[in-house]
């Protein structure tokens, strides 16, 4: 979803990582992870095989995989873990991969960029790069949306089994000097996953409506995401909620959405245009669907 619909997530993350001296190398020939919500629900074996193929691309490069999407993270982390520990499944998967001359070796790790930034770089180092901080805050009230697959199932994730009330994402994002606001049912699913947005869009939008109502009640200025699908659901989905649930809600929602590296980029002093916070004037029907300009103007960011 990122390369094909939200390229500014890709470029913002690249920029942030560059400033932190981490090199991100592109994998060539990768396919859909495959999306855990849909394809894993159709055939688990196919999901394992295609996931393993993507992992072999990284294995050939001898590098860990860094992911910007919770869905990809959920898929590849679990595929990697399953195939590293289940000999029988690994044998079957390698039988399929052998037909295209590949082999899953189990030699690399799968990481989410939040994991890399939090554990490998550390909040303190990132805080040092940030032009803003506790003394000079960017006065935004943030509504963090962790997303489900970032923290669950917690057993194989690097967050100390914490899935009910984690704080690592808040800590990471607060280097920008903004405050992460607690809101009702903060860890509610956005609704997009599990194939629900694909097959029952209105059902998925009802999840989003509930989340937006809670965020609005808490006075949140900006929603922060770590997954493009959540991002889409809360961004484009917000426009759709305003339309479909017009009679159910008190008024249209107007809370813009930022992917967290866009916020970090802003904190590092980069321009909002290059971070994808301002919609390109030449194209239509592209994100961001809920405009960020008014919020940025409010905190005095030059646009």
């Amino acid at each position: 979803m990122i390369p094909n619909r939200y390229p500014f997530i890709e470029s913002a993350t690249n920029n942030v990582f560059e400033k932190l001296n981490i090199e991100l190398i592109e994998m060539e020939g990768a396919s859909c992870c495959p999306a855990p919500g849909v394809f894993r629900g159709f055939d688990i074996d196919t999901w394992l095989v295609i996931g393993a193929r993507n992992i072999t691309i990284a294995e050939e490069l001898g590098l860990d995989i860094a992911l910007m999407c919770n869905g990809c993270y959920g898929s590849l982390l679990e595929v990697n873990h399953t195939l590293k520990h289940d000999k029988e499944k690994r044998r079957i998967v390698n039988e399929h991969l052998a037909k295209i001359g590949r082999e899953f070796k189990g030699s690399i790790n799968v990481r989410h960029v939040v994991d890399i930034l939090y554990h490998d770089v550390g909040v303190d180092k990132i805080q040092q790069r940030s032009k803003y901080g506790r003394k000079t805050p960017l006065n935004l009230k943030l509504g963090l949306h962790y997303g489900c697959h970032l923290t669950k199932p917690s057993e194989i994730r690097p967050w100390n089994q914490e899935s009910e009330k984690p704080t690592f994402f808040d800590e990471l994002v607060e280097v920008s000097g903004c405050k992460s606001i607690d809101y009702k049912d903060k860890f509610l699913c956005c609704g997009a996953g599990g194939g629900v947005r694909g097959a029952f869009k209105e059902v998925s939008l009802d999840y989003t409506r509930e989340k937006l109502e809670n965020m609005k009640a808490a006075g949140i200025d900006v929603i922060i995401t770590a997954c493009p699908f959540c991002h889409l659901q809360l961004d484009l989905g917000q426009v759709e909620v305003n339309k479909i649930f017009k009679d159910k809600i008190s008024g249209p929602f107007n809370i813009p959405v930022m992917y967290f590296t866009q916020l970090l980029g802003l904190a590092f002093g980069m321009e909002p245009e290059e971070l994808g916070l301002i919609r390109s004037p030449d194209l239509t029907g592209i994100p961001p669907f809920i405009p960020l300009k008014p919020v940025l103007k409010k905190i005095g960011v030059k646009v």
């Binding site: 669950k152 899935s163 629900v196 097959a199 029952f200």
Partner: peptide, 12 residues
Amino acid sequence: LWFCSTCYKCLE
């Protein structure tokens, strides 16, 4: 069966 958004809360 397809209304589940695989949020994993039940499993946790």
